[in-house]
Amino acid sequence: MPEVNTEKIFASFLLSVEQVTSIDEFNDLEKEYLGKNSLISEERKKLSSMSEISRKKYGKVLQELSTQISERLNQERLSFQSKFFKEKELNDNKDITINWYKDLGSREHVLTSVMNEVVDIFSAIGYTVATGPEAETSWHNFDALNTPDWHPARYESDTLYLDKNLEQLLRTQTSTVQVRHMQNNKPPVYIVAPGRVYRSDQLDATHSPVFHQIEGLAVDENLTFSDLKGTLEYFVQEFFGKGIKTKFIPHFFPFTEPSAEVLVSWKDGEWLEILGCGMVDPNVFQHVGYDKNSQGFAFGVGVERLAMIRYKIDHIKNFYENDLRFLRQF
């Protein structure tokens, strides 16, 4: 009985495999050696006309060959494929030192991100955001904050007014929000009030007619100077980093007593002022209709100052010119 030479077939298969140049050719090979019209299939058809012993024997031979080819084929296919993709990747070698996609902006303004950061720091300890008008009454900006009517801050050289009777003005401090908020809310109060404030200054390297502050106010039972201190130490560490040192030095503000300025030790060992604070003056509580025994503390941070210290920004003017060369750096 004629039998195919399995070794020869397998050898011929191996020869074909070696010549494969693309992944599709494995399918062709599969068809050629294992498909309907392959030699193995043809031989299988003959099995039915064989004696049982021959059939079993020859069937087994064919099966072994078929398995051998099939396994080898898969093995070769996988290795070809893996080699093929590796090579494909190696050939795809762009020079990524080119910035094809230019930096296209899409950022918060640096003042906004500093404000957001400060708000987040305080909201984590239970402070909510309060707002108030930027065009204010002189009463809210000065009188309610215990600033006497002869105080220099009220001069037209310092404050921008909206009318000749000097009854309305552009707020010079976000402390006005304290007053508005307490007029409408009972204690306990824990608020931060970020926003714009205005002074009569020309825009130059160190001055701006518009700048930003974040006011903080806490009024609650038994709040003391120690609480004020702990709160601002927490803020400084969150904003500037855990290692930074702070010190409190006495200062004067009409609307707090005792009043202090907070300084932080900056990288070169220099002490920099970053905020003013104090225990809310009893006169302020009286003006907003709070009980005279109320107790609490307030603080105000300059947003531009925080940004300038942190990023070593030299000109306050940069914040308001909106030159993308500046804005894109943050």
Binding site: V119, S123, I125, T128, A130, Y190, G230, P258
Partner: peptide, 24 residues
């Protein structure tokens, strides 16, 4: 009294409000 006691000699405490992470 506070000034002559020295602000930096005060202890520190961190009071917290009721509504945490509630920015409004």
């Amino acid at each position: 009294f506070a000034k002559h006691y020295g602000f930096n000699n005060f202890s520190s405490n961190l009071p917290q409000g009721l509504y945490k992470n509630e920015k409004g």
